[in-house]
Amino acid sequence: MTARDPSGQDSLLLDSQLAPPMANGEVLFDAPWQGRVFGMARVLAEAGYFTWDEFRAHLIREIGVWDRSASDTEYHYYDHFLAALQALIEEKQLLNPALLEDRVRTFADRPHGHDH
């Protein structure tokens, strides 16, 4: 992850992030939810609910907001990916946004230690 330092220069710590060259089956997602979000976007696109180009336009928009902001918050790619998916689902009227927020609250309020 990259943070923007006050001088405006991006810090680059590429060495530590270089994966072994031929690694296959490497860890692609930092957390399982990132894989779920990626998979949901792919399945919905493959089923024709939207095109991948439409998804990409939303992703570029979400990332662009961070890129142009003066924020010194850390960059987390999948946060933007999730926001893009949610915006597109809303645009395509697949889910009612209020319903989603209700569900988010319900899940957030689950007893501590909840596990599947």
Binding site: A31, P32, W33, Q34, R36, V37, M40, L44, Y78, D79, L82, L85, Q86, I89, L94, L95, L99, L100, R103, V104, T106, F107, A108, H112, G113, H114
Partner: peptide
Amino acid sequence: SEHSPQEIRAEALESLL
């Protein structure tokens, strides 16, 4: 034990879809 806001949101999204 701890679920990040993104994790909860992703799970909510999947459950509704």
